[in-house]
Design a protein around this nucleic acid. Structure first.
Lengths: 137, 137
DNA sequence: ACATAATATTCAAAAAATCGAATATGTGAA
DNA sequence: TTCACATATTCGATTTTTTGAATATTATGT
């Protein structure tokens, strides 16, 4: 697991989020569908540029639109994803600071915990051909 | 609200996440602290490149390290943020498809709901100098 | 059919991100 | 001190992203 294809897909999706203008668009769409003209009123960007960002969001399947006469009514394809991601980014978490000592202590704790299943670990390592090249201090 | 400075900061933080190699590093660090050599064994990237990505993650304050002899033991500064973000991206949400009709119906519902507080809305719009340029269908 | 408003696309230039290669730095051991 | 190992930085080349300007497309009303 921890597939590299998955990481690539995730990175692409995250990239679609990673622009101030696109974040503002998503934030706005969270409040409900909007046409491009509505967005022009709110965003400090030209029409063409907004259209370009909408194209990025469409390709990422984050938004889609419903044609309404001359207007294109944009909406979120995955509102929960957008809402939860934006909420998450708004949160702030106290920064952790760790020391080498503390980390070693934790490693030891984890090693002791899996003491009982040691033989299983070893055989798994052997059958998968794992080699430890790096120093273990 | 919906500050453009906030969007810029958020976009920068998200950019730090938005690379397959960096996602793999974060995923790996979720399991516990790792030194660069450990990561070299796992990632399909050269040492210099991994260091470069670690620098990006450090600047975003997503990781930091504790010096342990020759080794640098990298760890997550904000493990909850990383865990929750990765979990979120792993989830999949059914894509919503909406029609112009449905959207109009929803707008009407919302408009009716705020019927009682109409006068407040109008005065707010007037005092903030709001002008509606776009068509309302 | 035509004009118009709303939106999209194309193109070229500028800015930013990525990567490998080479080199530099820092730490502990001998 | 000197060496070796672990990691970081710099530099230049390549690729990707972003943007404005110009232009194209599409739906509607006349």
């Amino acid at each position: 697991m921890a597939d590299s294809r998955q990481q690539k897909a995730t990175a692409e999706l995250l990239k679609a989020f990673s622009h101030p203008t696109r974040l503002s668009i998503l934030q706005e769409l969270l409040a409900g569908p909007r046409c491009v003209t509505d967005m022009e009123e709110i965003l400090p960007a030209r029409q063409a540029n907004i259209s370009q960002h909408l194209a990025v969001l469409r390709h990422a399947r984050l938004v889609d639109y419903a044609q309404d006469g001359v207007l294109k009514c944009y909406y979120l394809c995955r509102p929960k994803l957008v809402k939860d991601l934006l909420t998450l980014m708004g949160r702030d978490e106290p920064m952790v600071i760790r020391t080498a000592k503390e980390i070693k202590a934790e490693k030891k704790r984890l090693a002791d915990m899996s003491e009982s299943s040691r033989s299983i670990e070893i055989s798994a390592a052997v059958t998968s051909g794992v080699k430890r090249r790096s120093r273990v201090r």
